[in-house]
Design a protein around this nucleic acid. Structure first.
Lengths: 193, 193
DNA sequence: GAACATATAGACCGGTTGATCTACCTGTCA
DNA sequence: TGACAGGTAGATCAACCGGTCTATATGTTC
């Protein structure tokens, strides 16, 4: 029941690694992370076994947070599934407008971790499955004729939005993606046969 | 007029770097490139001044090739602007199905090159502008009401397609992207007012 | 043949990488 | 008091990084 005023070395490491791997990429040196976290070298290996373990745990943590953010965003939009889905794109537009935005962390991780056996890949894959399920769930509630397919399309729009926002800032990708998302969501609504 | 049977060191370097930076990422060591190209260390610095120069030149070369590929693909689809635009997505679907496919080289470069002043970023930016212009040109021919905006959307679909293909292979992103591309292209065609 | 540009081969540099190690310090609990 | 877990500090390691260097070989061209 010790109420720590300062997070322990483990949390400090995760936080520093989360920030530095995003701003500097997966190639950041361990020394930079240790220095930023103000943590002894040994503690890293005690807690995570090495750099790969630390990176993987960072991805796991952020994935939990980001999946929760999807749900929070949708809950704030009310009960209507259509509004809930479109709110995701509005929210991503806000995030992408942040000066600190540097693209999708999970895509960057998959592209940067050349080794296909790196445990980080499994984490990113699971993250995408979670997001897909969240989107599909709303589409089912909408009685969308092809919820799985539509979820694929929405996820493609999300990835496209994040990629364009990272590489062509100022082109307003969020609005463009939202327009297309509306058509996906509204598919087969008032159409005959 | 010497008809070389083997490309010179410069071409061998560019070719090896093109392959290795794609399969291994921008973090590949110079030694690996030199060994793969079977080129002396010094030649790299004579021709490109260093690793950054080599990488930048690789991006410049592949950008020329890839922009030409857009035109070739569209020309093979005939004269109709609609068919020409949709052919791009069919072609990208083929490319993404290649076992060697590892995502968009230019997006990976922008995400991996942490230094915002790296000359490679200017090359990728110009590449995207070229692609945008190609798409917009066809949309103008189509008398699309908002050719610039539609080109933005098509480019977003391209980026999303390549990202999904790299991270969720087998989910058929090409077909999903093509469907949405059709709606973008057909926007305001038979609609009144 | 001499001069020259262009290769190659490889030693070498300082710096950094991820990882392992010892030594010491500081709480907590028995 | 004493043991012990968990933290810090920092030396040390082999390997590799990008880059510079010398020496040598191979052409081509005056």
């Amino acid at each position: 029941m010790t109420a720590r005023t300062t997070p322990g070395p483990r949390e400090r490491l995760l936080d520093a690694a989360r920030q530095l791997t995003y701003t500097q990429g997966m190639g950041v040196g361990i020394d930079a992370i240790l220095k930023s976290a103000n943590v002894a070298r040994r503690s890293l290996y005690e807690h995570f076994g090495g750099k790969d373990g630390l990176i993987t745990e960072v991805l796991r943590r952020t994935a939990v947070v980001d999946v929760a953010a999807y749900r929070t965003t949708m809950d704030a939009a009310g009960d209507d599934p259509r509004a809930r889905l479109l709110a995701v794109f509005d929210r991503l537009g806000e995030v992408a407008d942040t000066p600190a935005f540097r693209g999708c962390r999970y895509l960057a991780a998959d592209l940067a971790l050349a080794d296909p056996d790196h445990p980080g890949h499994a984490v990113t894959r699971e993250y995408r499955e979670d997001v897909h399920q969240i989107l599909e769930h709303e589409l089912v509630r909408l009685e969308h004729p092809r919820p799985g397919h539509a979820a694929d399309q929405l996820q493609l729009l999300v990835d496209g939005l994040l990629a364009v926002a990272a590489t062509r800032p100022g082109s307003g990708p969020a609005a463009a993606a939202r327009e297309l998302a509306e058509r996906v969501v509204d598919e087969g609504r008032r159409a005959p046969a």
